[in-house]
Amino acid sequence: MFYLISGGSGSGKSEYAETIAVRLAQEEKREKVYIATMMAFDEEAEKKIARHRCMRKKKQFKTVECFMKSSKLILPNNTIVLLDCLSNLLANEMYAENGAKEEAVQEILNGMENIKEQCVHFVLVTNEIYGDGCIYEQQTQQYVKNLGTLNQMLAKIADVVVEVVCGIPICYKGKELIK
């Protein structure tokens, strides 16, 4: 199954996604793999990474780093995969030196297909960034558009689509598949 989990800043989406991955792994007695996407480029990012690491520590995830080129990623077979989050991956592909740049959306779509094919269940965390009504300069506007495009295309192939609000899941697709 493919789970797409979205939410705004501080919505509790990562914690919710981890809970789903842990439950699936327990039920099916499988290993859990966490795909980390954030580059530690400053102190704030380091703190954030440390916070997420701490959350995952008890939950026994194997961590794989993937900042870019997810279409080439090779994973252990038959696991439950959690990727957090798509918005980092997109920023890396669009702005990092070796990123896919204009091909970012296609590269990531290929990447998500690649991951989906290698695992049993795929839990993907994305981000809600459409609620401030601001118009940004062209580069940011393109980013917003790309993430929106990805969210829509991935929601189409996802079995479950959930928005997390104040830690509470609102299910838009596949209600019968989550308890």
Partner: peptide, 15 residues
């Protein structure tokens, strides 16, 4: 208000 549903701001305080 729900304030976390926009583009992540550049300003550290806003974030």
């Amino acid at each position: 208000n729900e304030i976390g549903n926009g583009v992540v701001p550049m300003d550290p305080f806003e974030r």
